Amino acid sequence: MKKYILIFITIVGTNLQAQNLDSFFKDANIFFKANVKHGKVAYDAIHKNPERLNALLANAEKISVKESDAKNYQAFWINAYNLSVIKGIIDNYPTSSPLDNKGFFDKTTYSLAGKNVTLNDIEHKLLRPKFKDPRFHFVLVCGAVGCPPLISEAYLPSTLNAQLEAQTKKAINGNFLKVKKNKVSASKIMEWYKEDFTMNGTKEIDFINKYRNEKISDNAKLSYFEYNWNLNKQ
Rank of each mutant, 00 (worst) to 15 (best):
M1T: 09
M1H: 10
M1C: 10
M1D: 10
M1I: 07
M1G: 14
K2E: 14
K2F: 15
K2C: 11
K2A: 15
K2D: 14
K2L: 15
K2N: 15
K2W: 11
K3D: 14
K3C: 09
K3E: 15
K3H: 14
K3P: 00
K3Q: 15
Y4W: 09
Y4V: 04
Y4R: 12
Y4A: 13
Y4E: 14
I5R: 12
I5L: 15
I5Q: 12
L6W: 09
L6R: 11
L6N: 08
L6T: 11
I7M: 08
I7W: 02
I7D: 11
F8P: 00
F8G: 05
F8V: 07
F8A: 12
F8M: 11
I9R: 06
I9Y: 05
I9F: 11
I9N: 07
I9Q: 09
T10K: 08
T10V: 14
T10H: 06
I11P: 02
I11V: 15
V12F: 11
G13I: 03
G13N: 07
T14P: 00
T14E: 08
T14R: 05
N15S: 14
N15M: 14
N15D: 08
L16T: 10
L16P: 01
L16Y: 07
L16A: 08
L16Q: 05
L16G: 04
Q17D: 07
Q17W: 01
Q17Y: 01
Q17T: 06
A18K: 10
A18C: 04
A18T: 12
A18L: 11
Q19L: 15
Q19P: 03
Q19Y: 13
N20I: 07
N20E: 07
N20G: 08
L21D: 05
D22I: 07
D22T: 11
D22W: 06
D22R: 08
S23P: 00
S23D: 11
S23K: 12
S23M: 10
S23C: 08
S23F: 12
F24L: 07
F24W: 12
F24C: 03
F24R: 12
F24K: 10
F25C: 00
K26D: 07
K26T: 11
D27F: 03
D27H: 11
D27V: 06
A28R: 02
A28E: 04
A28P: 02
A28W: 03
N29E: 03
N29S: 05
N29T: 02
N29V: 03
N29G: 02
I30Y: 07
I30E: 06
I30F: 08
F31Q: 00
F31W: 02
F32P: 01
F32Y: 05
F32E: 01
F32D: 01
F32L: 00
K33A: 04
K33Q: 08
K33F: 03
K33I: 03
K33T: 01
K33L: 03
K33E: 04
A34M: 02
A34P: 00
A34T: 03
A34Y: 04
A34N: 08
N35H: 09
N35P: 01
N35Q: 02
N35S: 04
N35C: 06
